[in-house]
């Protein structure tokens, strides 16, 4: 199981157990959990807590790892909070191979940079896309028509415009 000195906070949300760790310790914590039996990374994603007034959040981005022990059928959600522009966190790809595409997706959608990832490129959006669509400050709807002149202007990075 997770060493006590790594866990910052524990809790249960709607029946799901979770544990918060410091972002600097994430690789160590996941590695310990993997050795403790949580061998499957079900998914990895991010939640953007921009202007979320439901409680006091330590940082804007919450990176979430859902782990499962397929023998005992136990599940655990590991959460860590990061900030920064862009936010950085250690990749879990070497521990859990399925994290490869999940991390690429999280980078694509939220702009989280996973350090030591073998190929951190966009996966769902086009390679030259500007912005990270699932961030809460990215507008929903109102995108201009693709291949139009406006689209070209809209999709030009500010430093190049």
């Amino acid at each position: 199981m997770i060493p006590e000195n790594l866990a910052v906070e524990r809790g249960v949300s709607a029946g799901d157990a979770w544990v918060t760790v410091e972002p600097a310790n994430i690789h160590e914590a996941l590695s310990a959990l993997k050795d403790g039996g949580f061998r499957l990374l079900v998914f990895l994603t991010c939640v953007d807590h921009l202007a979320d007034s439901s409680k006091e959040w330590p940082a804007r981005y919450e990176v979430v790892y859902q782990l499962r022990d397929m023998e005992t059928r136990e599940q655990l959600r590991v959460r860590t909070f990061i900030d920064g522009d862009p936010p950085h966190i250690e990749s879990a790809y070497d521990l859990f191979p399925p994290a490869n595409w999940d991390e690429r997706e999280t980078y694509d959608m939220f702009g989280i940079v996973f350090d030591n990832h073998p190929d951190l490129t966009r996966i769902l959006m086009p390679d030259d896309w500007v912005g990270h669509p699932l961030r809460r400050d990215y507008p929903v709807g109102g995108e201009v028509v693709e291949f139009s002149e406006e689209h070209e202007r809209w999709q030009t990075a500010p430093e190049k415009a």
């Binding site: 709607a14 939640v47 007034s53 439901s54 859902q66 959600r77």
Partner: peptide
């Protein structure tokens, strides 16, 4: 407020939904 993950078995495998409420 809270978050929850529910997984169901679809024809293709584990089809899960992770929902966060504020």
């Amino acid at each position: 407020p809270g978050d929850v993950y529910v997984a169901v078995e679809s024809g293709r495998g584990e089809n899960g939904c992770y929902v966060v409420s504020d």
